[in-house]
Amino acid sequence: MKNFKNITLALIALTALNSCSNDDVQAIADVSGSTQINFDSKVGTADFALNTPFTISGQSYQFDHLRYWVSDVKLVSDKNVTYALSNSFFLMEETSDILVQETFTYKANKREAIDLKDVPSGSYTKVIFSIGVDATHNDNMSIQDGELSQLNGMTNVSWMWHTSYIFSSLTGKNVTPDTPVAVSVETGLNANYRTVEITLPTALIVSAGKTAKLNLNVDVEKIIKDIDLVAKPKISASTPELMTKVADNYKNNVFTVKSVE
């Protein structure tokens, strides 16, 4: 009787698999537990927090938001197999309320994790992702993949430089002077799109029944590495060479591996 039950269960399982398309069967067979990338914001070694003074290059800054697009996430396995999440756009952020279009409020939010779906089991040794929005999506705001939207305050529809997305934005104030100075560090030109490649110190093992986690440090201090925010508190389209520097910092300096679980 017990055997019969087991056979029945096996048959049901088989039927369920068969009802899927071939692609699905492949996916289900290979797919593991969950996979997550965490972007843990820091200022040097301290945890990043809003409206909290941090000393950077001798100046005291209080930030009110840190936001950036992570897109086209890829994991590369030790067998050189690539898992790619195309047309993926994730808005990473730690932000106070934002007034969008001067008419409605985007609520304060903290978001540091990306859940990757259906990552095949394997041993992953490299992570690749881009900061910003690729030219196809940036130039045509009606192609709204992933979390791209006109409603999150990460667009620039009001002619500041272009009808396009803001790729990254760090804003707040320098509170060192007697009268605090607003600071804003933004990128958003197609030329600012950067792809980050990080080789992992230990492999990210994705397998059934396990939650694989890749924890990255995001060092806010490095976003403005080699940039004099006292001389130029606002980095935007009118300072394209500084935007390039910020974009390069995102590519080369901002992200490091904290841990692999």
Partner: peptide
């Protein structure tokens, strides 16, 4: 770059 994006402005 195109009429779609333009309309948002």
């Amino acid at each position: 770059t195109n009429l779609e994006s333009q309309a948002f402005a």
